[in-house]
């Protein structure tokens, strides 16, 4: 999953599963996604869980501030996976 588009699509799918009604189509990839999609801490944790299980990427709590937007998150995961 090195491809940026594939990774983005994967993340949006996961968000849809966790928060079925969220308007991911109109998400600005550079805005705070928790604010934009109204994800609470439990939703966010479940997203990280999916990422950890399916991509084997473990994001520590200290790095949460580096993954606030969709683009940040994609870049972060790509960097770690490399």
């Amino acid at each position: 999953m090195k491809d940026k588009n594939t990774l983005t699509r994967f993340l949006l799918e996961q968000i849809q599963t966790i928060a079925p009604d969220s308007d991911t189509d109109n998400l600005d990839p550079d805005e705070d996604m928790r604010d934009e999609l109204d994800l609470d801490s439990m939703d966010f944790l479940r997203l990280l869980e999916s990422i950890s299980k399916q991509l084997s990427v473990n994001i520590p709590e200290v790095d949460y501030n580096k993954i606030t937007t969709l683009n940040n998150m994609v870049n972060y995961i790509q960097a770690i996976a490399r």
Binding site: S41, L45, L48, E49, I51, S52, P60, E61
Partner: peptide
């Protein structure tokens, strides 16, 4: 919490709640 979560994978992490 931070100390506990450091060693945990996301599925085992705790929230302050």
């Amino acid at each position: 919490l931070q100390h506990y979560n450091e060693t945990q994978p996301p599925e085992s992490r705790l929230l302050i709640n």
